[in-house]
């Protein structure tokens, strides 16, 4: 019983990270229709930078903040390259983001080397209902939930948030009310970068990061995002948490390291189900 609670909380912590990566993809996809495959690179970049900054003696908080800010900047840059040219197809932009993700490997290996990096997170462990779990997992959850709440409030309650939603709903009409759709796309990329960066700096103390950690993050993040059809951040949160919990439970009870395969299976099943449903809708419409 106490094992189960431990696995659950650990899973929620890991899942929160997936949800952050996934919601970043959702924010970008909603506004620009681009599936951003550089999303995991934002997390790795932020994590590597934070680790380097902490090594120079910068205190916690500042180092993580700098990591997230730089990831947001990397997001904007990715956006400029991917959608900066008017009329770039979302499919072409996707390939550009893939290329930028690979380019990020080169940069990260050159600057920080190819060895795994980590740093200390929130120290200690907490005993909850007989289960001992690392306190840092609770921190990850405690940061992620308010971030999602703020994200919702931003989209619903502020003018730039509403403008982003307007772009997502009808870019043609958005232009008519004076919204610069491309600029909003870059803003979405910046937000996506920040969310990815946050996932990176939060997860690194419990999962060391290497330059190619982005693959795990992107597969899990995308699997979480695809549950909500790549358009609903709230569903991405639920999806991410679910994935995290499922993976820790399977790893805990079944042993073995098949987490990535599970995420891939979930993603595939969801996409097949969605394609089948969309197909039947089309047939009915015909």
């Amino acid at each position: 019983m106490s094992d189960l609670l431990g696995y659950l909380l650990t899973g929620l912590g890991i899942g929160a990270g997936f949800a952050l990566v996934g919601s970043g993809m959702v924010v970008i996809h909603r506004v620009t229709r681009v599936v951003n495959l550089a999303q995991g690179a934002f997390a790795v970049l932020a994590a590597m930078l934070t680790s380097a900054l902490l090594a120079t003696g910068l205190p916690h908080g500042l180092a993580e903040g700098a990591g997230v800010l730089v990831a947001a900047g990397a997001g904007v840059l990715t956006g400029i390259v991917a959608i900066g040219r008017p009329g770039t197809e979302p499919g072409a932009a996707l390939i550009i983001t893939l290329g930028l993700g690979v380019l990020a490997y080169a940069v990260e290996v050159t600057v920080w080397g190819d060895q795994p990096r980590s740093y200390a997170g929130l120290p200690g462990a907490v005993t909850l209902g007989g289960a001992r779990i690392q306190a840092h997992y609770l921190l990850v959850i405690a940061v992620t939930l308010p971030v999602f709440a703020a994200l919702m409030a931003f989209f619903r309650g502020t003018d730039p948030g509403k403008a982003l939603t307007a772009c997502a709903e009808n870019p043609y009409a958005a232009r008519v009310v004076g919204i610069d759709v491309r600029r909003m796309g870059l803003l979405a990329f910046g937000l996506g970068g920040a969310l990815g960066g946050l996932a990176g700096v939060l997860l690194t103390p419990v999962q060391q990061v290497t330059f190619d950690s982005d693959v795990t993050l992107i597969v899990n993040g995308f699997a979480a995002a695809v549950l909500g059809g790549l358009t609903r951040p709230g569903v991405a949160l639920a999806g991410g948490l679910l994935l995290g919990v499922a993976q820790t439970l399977i790893a805990g009870y079944g042993g073995g390291a098949h987490q990535l395969e599970i995420a891939l299976l979930v993603m595939l099943a969801v996409m097949v189900a969605q394609a089948v449903r969309a197909g039947s809708v089309r047939e009915v419409a015909r």
């Binding site: 003018d159 509403k162 939603t165 709903e169 009808n170 009409a173 958005a174 009310v177 004076g178 803003l187």
Partner: peptide, 24 residues
Amino acid sequence: RVFPGMTVLENVMVGAHGTTGAGF
């Protein structure tokens, strides 16, 4: 050409986007 997924009032408020000055 309205914005589905937003209320009628929110739709109209977005119309003021071009006149807002306080910024992001």
